[in-house]
């Protein structure tokens, strides 16, 4: 068990090493380099003409004249040893400052989404499997189809439209105006929770639809297992039987796909955040891609992926507790 945990723990860093190379490649992809954009930002509109030698000076100053692998190591080294993600030139500050509170808000959105997803998907999936081919089951199947077909950002737009048109208020943003710049307080926290509801529901939409199907499929398989019939033959009451045997196992695939859910949520987060005006990492990611502010983009991509990889690690550990076959080996 301990060996298993240690293995997974180091595996996580190996994965992150390769991910960081991918991310660095993406950062290097846009045409022109950091110096061009830096100079353009700094001097455009000022009437100063930037010559090629000026650019070379900037490159030398920023260390951009070094080969790519050296730049990679100084970038990743800065992150690992000084927790320094580089400079966000569009904001003329460090990336760390820009990310700041957005990371916390991103995590808040992520976890409220996950909680809603699992609170809905697990019981509903179990119900649908127990009542197969009932009206409720068919209704859920239709919902699952819609869950995939209706992209989250469209759902967000629809909710926005409804709220503005019929409720007369906007559901966008993460804070009401009066709390926007206020220091943290219980009132501000409650306000945040209220604002988290809409993005969390929007983001949980497709994840829930997907997980209901997973739970339903596993549960349907498990219900027909001989071990369940054997327990029924022991005279165990039906309800207790369902919870002890098939339902217990129907949770496993949910736990094992937790990282996948986070991946899906992060995939949809930027666009939903843009539509709903949420000041978190995803929205900033789009903005930095549009600005070609690649240090910010790289930092966000790396952070989001790290959270996914870490959740994968957690789900592996959780799964090993749920399944004695893994727990007792290694």
């Amino acid at each position: 068990m301990i060996r298993f945990v240690i293995e997974r723990f180091f595996g996580m860093f190996v994965t992150m090493f390769f991910v960081s190379i991918m991310v660095f490649i993406i950062m290097e992809l846009p045409p022109g380099d950091y110096a061009d954009r830096y100079a353009f930002r700094k001097f455009s509109g000022t009437g100063v003409t930037v010559t090629e030698s000026d650019l070379d000076n900037i490159r030398a100053e920023l260390g951009l004249d070094r080969p790519a692998y050296q730049r990679y190591f100084s970038w990743i080294g800065g992150i690992l040893f000084r927790f320094d993600f580089g400079d966000a030139f569009a904001y003329e500050t460090s990336v760390n400052n820009v990310l700041g509170q957005r990371l916390g808000l991103t995590l808040a959105i992520l976890f409220s989404t996950l909680i809603i997803t699992y609170l809905v998907a697990i019981p509903v999936g179990i119900y649908a499997a127990v009542h197969r081919h009932s009206a409720a089951d068919y209704g859920l199947t239709i919902f699952s189809y819609l869950g995939l077909a209706l992209p989250n950002f469209l759902l967000a737009l629809i909710l926005l439209y409804i709220s503005v048109k019929y409720l007369g208020s906007s559901v966008g943003g993460l804070f009401s105006a009066e709390y926007q710049d206020a220091p943290w307080s219980i009132a501000k926290f409650v306000d945040l929770l209220k604002h988290l509801m809409v993005p969390a529901i929007v983001l949980a939409w497709s994840a829930t639809a997907f997980q209901i199907q997973t739970v339903r499929a596993t549960m349907s398989d498990e219900i027909n297992k001989l071990s369940v019939t054997a327990a029924r033959a022991r005279g165990i009451p039906e309800r207790r039987l369902l919870f002890k045997y098939p339902a217990r196992l129907a949770i496993n695939p949910v736990v094992s796909t937790m990282g996948f859910d986070v991946n899906r949520i992060f995939s949809e987060l930027p666009i939903v955040a843009l539509v709903l005006g949420l000041a978190e990492l995803g929205e900033l990611l789009i903005q930095s891609y549009l600005d070609l502010d690649m240090f910010v983009a790289g930092a966000i991509l790396l952070l989001l992926t790290f959270i996914i990889v870490f959740m994968n690690f957690l789900s592996d550990i959780a799964l090993s507790f749920l399944d004695p076959r893994i727990k007792l080996k290694g």
Binding site: T15, F18, M22, L29, P31, I271, A297, T305
Partner: peptide, 24 residues
């Protein structure tokens, strides 16, 4: 196998966006 795992762990739309941002 390892390579496909790396690609699959990065959230896909942000990855697409990163590649699309590189278009001149």
């Amino acid at each position: 196998q390892r390579f496909t795992e790396i690609i699959r762990v990065i959230p896909i739309i942000p990855l697409y966006m990163g590649l699309a941002a590189a278009f001149p």
